[in-house]
């Protein structure tokens, strides 16, 4: 018998879990009986103390729109001049609407890599198990996604946000994320460029942050890869962080 078990989050867990969550994460328990959302925690059997949590969502973006940038390529070529340029573009859209999502994955601060792997592995396995067992939802797609946290600089600022977000919203992003939770990105997306943006127009640090995950999420990223999720060409709109995706039927199980 293992020393850990996975269960639903309860009101008693809230003070602990909420302290772990990033600004912009959902902070409330799912509505009782909600079919599209579950908040799972992995806890020690001995004292039922939570060590990590994960919010499982299905058929996302059908009530509150979700936005991502699709990272694409445009080739500008002039053969007679020997010019051939491959240019990266970012296109705002709602491409992953309807997917299932492993969201707001957080753990007790201070866990080392081995401990992270120990608590996250059963949590992810339980989430995937729950997904497979669930009744299909109307409007759901056959895709699973997981957003990783993005790069931040020494001051805790995201270079991607500084380069592409701030020119269009100069308010305090952290504060707004804290205030609005998951709705923050829906709100701020209405201010972001709707037409494709060539990454070449962004500052070098912002370009370098496109599709890069925060090093603190390395263990999580490894586990998600093991489960079959891969960078799928989308990034988050506030940090340029990678969105991992996998077709549900190809997930390791």
């Amino acid at each position: 018998m293992t020393a850990l078990h996975v269960r639903g989050a309860t009101v008693a867990d809230l003070p602990l879990l909420q302290a772990w969550l990033a600004p912009g994460a959902a902070r409330d328990l799912p509505a009782p009986g909600a079919r599209s959302e579950a908040w799972l925690v992995v806890a020690r059997r001995a004292d039922d103390q939570p060590l990590a949590c994960l919010r499982l969502r299905r058929a996302i973006g059908l009530d509150l729109p979700r936005h991502w940038y699709h990272v694409g390529w445009v080739v500008h070529a002039a053969a007679e001049l020997g010019l051939f340029h491959r240019l990266q573009t970012l296109q705002l859209g709602n491409d992953l609407t309807g997917a299932s999502e492993l969201a707001d994955i957080a753990w007790q601060p201070g866990l080392d890599a081995a401990a992270q792997a120990e608590v996250l592995a059963p949590l992810l396995a339980a989430a995937l198990q729950a997904l497979r067992a669930a009744e299909p939802l109307a409007g759901a797609s056959a895709l699973l996604i997981a957003e990783l946290p993005g790069l931040v600089d020494a001051d805790g600022l995201s270079p991607f946000w500084q380069g592409l977000g701030r020119p269009f919203y100069d308010g305090d992003a952290q504060q707004a994320a804290q205030r609005f939770g998951p709705a923050w990105r829906s709100h701020v997306a209405t201010l972001m460029p709707r037409q494709p943006v060539y990454s070449a127009f962004l500052p070098v640090a912002a370009q370098a942050a496109v599709g890069r995950a925060h090093p603190a999420a390395a263990v999580l990223a490894g586990l998600l890869q093991q489960a079959g999720l891969r960078p799928g060409g989308h990034i988050t709109i506030d940090q340029g962080a990678p969105v991992l995706t996998a077709p549900l039927d190809l997930l390791a199980g």
Partner: peptide, 26 residues
């Protein structure tokens, strides 16, 4: 100079970004 000739602007333009440029990013 690379383009030369009368219609150099045509091919230069063909290599420029085809989607709108957001001035706040400049």
């Amino acid at each position: 100079r690379l383009g030369g000739g009368r219609n150099h602007k045509g091919w230069i333009a063909g290599l420029m970004p085809q989607s709108p440029i957001y001035v706040p990013l400049l």
